[in-house]
Design a protein around this nucleic acid. Structure first.
Lengths: 133, 133
DNA sequence: TATTGTTATACTCTATAACTATA
DNA sequence: TATAGTTATAGAGTATAACAATA
Protein backbone atom coordinates (compact mmCIF):
# COMPACT_ATOMS: atom_id res chain seq x y z
CA UNK A 1 0.00 0.00 0.00
CA UNK A 2 2.18 2.81 -1.28
CA UNK A 3 -0.48 5.43 -0.64
CA UNK A 4 -0.16 5.08 3.12
CA UNK A 5 3.57 5.73 2.98
CA UNK A 6 3.02 8.78 0.81
CA UNK A 7 0.49 10.18 3.23
CA UNK A 8 2.75 9.65 6.23
CA UNK A 9 5.64 11.34 4.43
CA UNK A 10 3.35 14.21 3.49
CA UNK A 11 2.27 14.58 7.10
CA UNK A 12 5.87 14.84 8.25
CA UNK A 13 6.81 17.27 5.51
CA UNK A 14 3.91 19.51 6.41
CA UNK A 15 4.66 19.23 10.13
CA UNK A 16 8.26 20.31 9.55
CA UNK A 17 7.16 23.15 7.33
CA UNK A 18 4.61 24.23 9.91
CA UNK A 19 7.27 24.25 12.63
CA UNK A 20 9.82 26.10 10.51
CA UNK A 21 7.25 28.70 9.60
CA UNK A 22 5.99 29.24 13.15
CA UNK A 23 9.38 29.55 14.77
CA UNK A 24 10.55 32.84 13.29
CA UNK A 25 7.21 34.32 14.40
CA UNK A 26 7.98 33.36 18.00
CA UNK A 27 5.30 30.67 18.04
CA UNK A 28 5.25 26.94 18.53
CA UNK A 29 3.24 25.04 15.92
CA UNK A 30 0.57 24.40 18.55
CA UNK A 31 0.33 28.08 19.41
CA UNK A 32 0.09 29.00 15.75
CA UNK A 33 -2.67 26.46 15.29
CA UNK A 34 -4.59 27.83 18.25
CA UNK A 35 -4.31 31.42 17.05
CA UNK A 36 -5.36 30.49 13.53
CA UNK A 37 -8.41 28.60 14.79
CA UNK A 38 -9.48 31.73 16.65
CA UNK A 39 -9.37 33.73 13.42
CA UNK A 40 -12.91 32.47 12.81
CA UNK A 41 -14.07 34.03 16.07
CA UNK A 42 -13.89 33.52 19.85
CA UNK A 43 -14.45 30.08 21.32
CA UNK A 44 -14.97 28.52 24.72
CA UNK A 45 -12.36 26.29 26.29
CA UNK A 46 -14.26 23.05 25.74
CA UNK A 47 -14.95 23.74 22.09
CA UNK A 48 -11.38 24.88 21.49
CA UNK A 49 -9.95 21.79 23.19
CA UNK A 50 -12.13 19.64 20.95
CA UNK A 51 -10.95 21.38 17.81
CA UNK A 52 -7.29 21.15 18.84
CA UNK A 53 -7.66 17.56 20.06
CA UNK A 54 -6.15 18.26 23.45
CA UNK A 55 -7.45 18.01 27.01
CA UNK A 56 -9.00 21.11 28.52
CA UNK A 57 -6.34 21.16 31.23
CA UNK A 58 -3.63 21.23 28.57
CA UNK A 59 -5.42 24.07 26.88
CA UNK A 60 -5.61 26.05 30.11
CA UNK A 61 -1.84 26.32 30.25
CA UNK A 62 -1.53 27.12 26.56
CA UNK A 63 -4.05 29.93 26.89
CA UNK A 64 -2.27 31.13 30.06
CA UNK A 65 0.97 31.51 28.13
CA UNK A 66 -0.66 33.27 25.20
CA UNK A 67 -2.63 35.53 27.52
CA UNK A 68 0.57 36.48 29.36
CA UNK A 69 1.90 37.64 25.99
CA UNK A 70 -1.35 39.53 25.33
CA UNK A 71 -2.06 37.54 22.18
CA UNK A 72 -5.43 36.26 23.42
CA UNK A 73 -7.83 37.32 26.16
CA UNK A 74 -10.39 35.46 28.25
CA UNK A 75 -13.74 37.17 28.40
CA UNK A 76 -16.70 36.06 30.45
CA UNK A 77 -19.65 34.43 28.76
CA UNK A 78 -22.74 36.46 29.65
CA UNK A 79 -25.00 33.41 29.27
CA UNK A 80 -23.01 31.00 31.44
CA UNK A 81 -21.00 32.22 34.38
CA UNK A 82 -18.92 29.04 34.40
CA UNK A 83 -17.68 29.57 30.87
CA UNK A 84 -15.29 31.93 29.19
CA UNK A 85 -14.61 32.90 25.61
CA UNK A 86 -11.09 33.02 24.23
CA UNK A 87 -10.59 35.81 21.72
CA UNK A 88 -7.62 37.11 19.78
CA UNK A 89 -6.25 40.50 20.80
CA UNK A 90 -5.35 42.93 18.03
CA UNK A 91 -1.73 41.81 18.27
CA UNK A 92 -2.84 38.19 18.31
CA UNK A 93 -5.00 38.71 15.26
CA UNK A 94 -2.13 40.35 13.38
CA UNK A 95 0.20 37.50 14.31
CA UNK A 96 -2.38 34.88 13.40
CA UNK A 97 -2.85 36.44 9.98
CA UNK A 98 0.89 36.61 9.54
CA UNK A 99 1.24 32.95 10.44
CA UNK A 100 -1.64 31.96 8.19
CA UNK A 101 -0.18 33.85 5.27
CA UNK A 102 3.23 32.36 5.87
CA UNK A 103 1.86 28.82 5.90
CA UNK A 104 -0.17 29.46 2.82
CA UNK A 105 2.82 30.85 1.02
CA UNK A 106 5.08 27.98 1.95
CA UNK A 107 2.59 25.28 1.04
CA UNK A 108 1.57 27.07 -2.15
CA UNK A 109 5.19 26.98 -3.21
CA UNK A 110 5.03 23.19 -3.03
CA UNK A 111 1.86 22.91 -5.06
CA UNK A 112 1.80 25.82 -7.48
CA UNK A 113 2.97 23.81 -10.46
CA UNK A 114 0.03 21.43 -10.36
CA UNK A 115 -2.33 21.92 -13.27
CA UNK A 116 -5.82 23.05 -12.34
CA UNK A 117 -7.44 19.72 -13.13
CA UNK A 118 -5.00 17.77 -10.98
CA UNK A 119 -5.45 20.33 -8.27
CA UNK A 120 -9.20 19.81 -8.25
CA UNK A 121 -8.82 16.05 -8.12
CA UNK A 122 -6.33 16.36 -5.29
CA UNK A 123 -8.66 18.56 -3.26
CA UNK A 124 -11.51 16.12 -3.82
CA UNK A 125 -9.43 13.11 -2.80
CA UNK A 126 -8.06 14.81 0.32
CA UNK A 127 -11.47 16.08 1.34
CA UNK A 128 -12.79 12.57 1.00
CA UNK A 129 -10.09 11.32 3.35
CA UNK A 130 -10.50 14.00 5.99
CA UNK A 131 -14.28 13.75 6.01
CA UNK A 132 -14.10 10.07 6.92
CA UNK A 133 -11.94 10.60 9.97
CA UNK B 1 -6.25 28.61 -2.52
CA UNK B 2 -8.47 25.82 -1.25
CA UNK B 3 -5.74 23.21 -1.70
CA UNK B 4 -3.67 24.67 1.10
CA UNK B 5 -6.56 24.41 3.54
CA UNK B 6 -7.19 20.83 2.51
CA UNK B 7 -3.57 19.92 3.07
CA UNK B 8 -3.47 21.54 6.50
CA UNK B 9 -6.64 19.73 7.52
CA UNK B 10 -5.17 16.47 6.23
CA UNK B 11 -2.03 17.06 8.25
CA UNK B 12 -4.04 17.53 11.44
CA UNK B 13 -6.24 14.52 10.76
CA UNK B 14 -3.19 12.34 10.23
CA UNK B 15 -1.46 13.77 13.30
CA UNK B 16 -4.46 12.95 15.47
CA UNK B 17 -4.72 9.49 14.00
CA UNK B 18 -1.01 8.95 14.58
CA UNK B 19 -1.34 10.01 18.21
CA UNK B 20 -4.44 7.89 18.82
CA UNK B 21 -2.74 4.88 17.30
CA UNK B 22 0.51 5.29 19.22
CA UNK B 23 -1.04 5.80 22.62
CA UNK B 24 -2.50 2.36 23.25
CA UNK B 25 0.92 0.94 22.38
CA UNK B 26 2.48 2.99 25.17
CA UNK B 27 4.29 5.27 22.73
CA UNK B 28 4.20 8.95 21.96
CA UNK B 29 3.91 9.79 18.25
CA UNK B 30 7.55 10.90 18.28
CA UNK B 31 8.68 7.63 19.82
CA UNK B 32 6.66 5.66 17.31
CA UNK B 33 8.23 7.65 14.50
CA UNK B 34 11.72 7.02 15.83
CA UNK B 35 11.16 3.28 16.19
CA UNK B 36 9.65 3.02 12.71
CA UNK B 37 12.59 4.87 11.16
CA UNK B 38 14.92 2.33 12.74
CA UNK B 39 13.02 -0.52 11.05
CA UNK B 40 15.24 0.15 8.04
CA UNK B 41 18.35 -0.49 10.12
CA UNK B 42 20.54 1.11 12.81
CA UNK B 43 21.49 4.77 12.50
CA UNK B 44 23.86 7.21 14.18
CA UNK B 45 22.57 10.06 16.29
CA UNK B 46 23.34 12.76 13.76
CA UNK B 47 21.66 10.95 10.90
CA UNK B 48 18.66 10.07 13.04
CA UNK B 49 18.27 13.66 14.26
CA UNK B 50 18.34 14.81 10.64
CA UNK B 51 15.62 12.35 9.63
CA UNK B 52 13.44 13.25 12.60
CA UNK B 53 14.09 16.98 12.20
CA UNK B 54 15.11 17.48 15.80
CA UNK B 55 18.32 18.64 17.48
CA UNK B 56 20.83 16.00 18.50
CA UNK B 57 20.47 17.05 22.14
CA UNK B 58 16.73 16.45 21.96
CA UNK B 59 17.34 13.07 20.44
CA UNK B 60 19.73 12.13 23.24
CA UNK B 61 16.94 12.28 25.80
CA UNK B 62 14.48 10.46 23.54
CA UNK B 63 16.95 7.63 23.03
CA UNK B 64 17.70 7.60 26.77
CA UNK B 65 14.03 7.01 27.53
CA UNK B 66 13.64 4.28 24.91
CA UNK B 67 16.87 2.62 26.00
CA UNK B 68 15.66 2.59 29.61
CA UNK B 69 12.65 0.63 28.34
CA UNK B 70 14.96 -1.69 26.38
CA UNK B 71 13.32 -0.80 23.07
CA UNK B 72 16.55 0.44 21.49
CA UNK B 73 20.24 0.00 22.26
CA UNK B 74 23.31 2.12 21.63
CA UNK B 75 26.19 0.19 20.12
CA UNK B 76 29.64 1.54 19.41
CA UNK B 77 30.66 2.31 15.86
CA UNK B 78 33.84 0.32 15.14
CA UNK B 79 34.98 2.88 12.55
CA UNK B 80 34.53 6.00 14.67
CA UNK B 81 34.98 5.95 18.40
CA UNK B 82 33.02 9.18 18.80
CA UNK B 83 29.92 7.75 17.20
CA UNK B 84 27.27 5.26 18.20
CA UNK B 85 24.62 3.35 16.35
CA UNK B 86 21.05 3.18 17.57
CA UNK B 87 19.41 -0.15 16.90
CA UNK B 88 16.05 -1.68 17.73
CA UNK B 89 15.99 -4.44 20.32
CA UNK B 90 13.84 -7.48 19.59
CA UNK B 91 11.07 -5.99 21.71
CA UNK B 92 11.55 -2.63 19.99
CA UNK B 93 11.36 -4.25 16.58
CA UNK B 94 8.16 -6.05 17.51
CA UNK B 95 6.63 -2.85 18.81
CA UNK B 96 7.75 -0.88 15.76
CA UNK B 97 6.14 -3.42 13.47
CA UNK B 98 3.01 -3.34 15.54
CA UNK B 99 2.89 0.46 15.35
CA UNK B 100 3.57 0.43 11.64
CA UNK B 101 0.82 -2.08 11.00
CA UNK B 102 -1.59 -0.12 13.16
CA UNK B 103 -0.90 3.12 11.28
CA UNK B 104 -1.22 1.38 7.96
CA UNK B 105 -4.50 -0.15 8.97
CA UNK B 106 -5.98 3.10 10.23
CA UNK B 107 -4.91 5.12 7.20
CA UNK B 108 -5.95 2.40 4.80
CA UNK B 109 -9.41 2.55 6.28
CA UNK B 110 -9.60 6.19 5.21
CA UNK B 111 -8.47 5.53 1.67
CA UNK B 112 -9.61 2.05 0.76
CA UNK B 113 -12.62 3.19 -1.23
CA UNK B 114 -10.57 5.18 -3.73
CA UNK B 115 -10.55 3.60 -7.18
CA UNK B 116 -7.15 2.45 -8.37
CA UNK B 117 -6.77 5.23 -10.93
CA UNK B 118 -7.53 7.96 -8.40
CA UNK B 119 -5.16 6.28 -5.99
CA UNK B 120 -2.34 6.38 -8.51
CA UNK B 121 -2.96 10.03 -9.27
CA UNK B 122 -3.05 10.83 -5.58
CA UNK B 123 0.27 9.09 -4.95
CA UNK B 124 1.83 10.95 -7.85
CA UNK B 125 0.56 14.31 -6.67
CA UNK B 126 1.64 13.76 -3.08
CA UNK B 127 5.05 12.48 -4.11
CA UNK B 128 5.48 15.59 -6.21
CA UNK B 129 4.76 17.74 -3.20
CA UNK B 130 7.02 15.90 -0.77
CA UNK B 131 9.91 15.74 -3.20
CA UNK B 132 9.97 19.52 -3.48
CA UNK B 133 10.30 20.13 0.21
C1' DT C 1 39.71 22.58 13.47
C1' DA C 2 35.60 20.01 12.66
C1' DT C 3 32.47 16.48 14.03
C1' DT C 4 29.94 13.17 17.30
C1' DG C 5 27.44 12.88 20.97
C1' DT C 6 26.32 14.46 25.79
C1' DT C 7 25.08 17.58 29.67
C1' DA C 8 22.81 21.45 31.77
C1' DT C 9 19.07 24.38 31.60
C1' DA C 10 14.73 26.32 30.53
C1' DC C 11 10.32 26.16 28.23
C1' DT C 12 6.48 24.10 26.15
C1' DC C 13 3.11 20.36 25.41
C1' DT C 14 0.35 16.90 27.29
C1' DA C 15 -2.42 13.75 30.21
C1' DT C 16 -4.58 12.26 34.65
C1' DA C 17 -6.85 13.20 38.79
C1' DA C 18 -8.93 16.17 41.89
C1' DC C 19 -11.11 20.42 42.52
C1' DT C 20 -14.46 24.87 42.32
C1' DA C 21 -18.23 27.15 40.60
C1' DT C 22 -22.23 27.17 38.05
C1' DA C 23 -26.11 24.96 35.42
C1' DT D 1 -25.96 15.47 38.79
C1' DA D 2 -23.64 17.26 34.92
C1' DT D 3 -20.76 20.67 32.78
C1' DA D 4 -17.03 24.55 32.30
C1' DG D 5 -12.86 25.54 33.54
C1' DT D 6 -8.77 25.34 36.75
C1' DT D 7 -5.02 23.45 39.67
C1' DA D 8 -1.53 20.16 40.86
C1' DT D 9 1.53 16.97 39.29
C1' DA D 10 4.32 14.26 36.39
C1' DG D 11 6.43 13.07 32.25
C1' DA D 12 7.79 13.92 27.52
C1' DG D 13 9.47 16.89 23.61
C1' DT D 14 12.36 20.64 22.22
C1' DA D 15 16.01 24.23 21.63
C1' DT D 16 20.29 26.71 23.02
C1' DA D 17 24.73 26.81 24.80
C1' DA D 18 28.65 24.73 26.59
C1' DC D 19 31.31 20.69 26.84
C1' DA D 20 34.31 16.12 26.09
C1' DA D 21 36.25 12.90 23.07
C1' DT D 22 37.71 11.73 18.71
C1' DA D 23 38.71 12.57 13.73
Amino acid sequence: MELVGSLVRLMHVLQDLYAETSRPLGLTPQQAHLLCVLLDGPLGMTELSRILSIERSSLTSMVDRLERRSLVARTTDPNDRRACQIALSDAGSDLAHEAHNAFTGRISALTDDLPATHRKQLIAAITGITERS
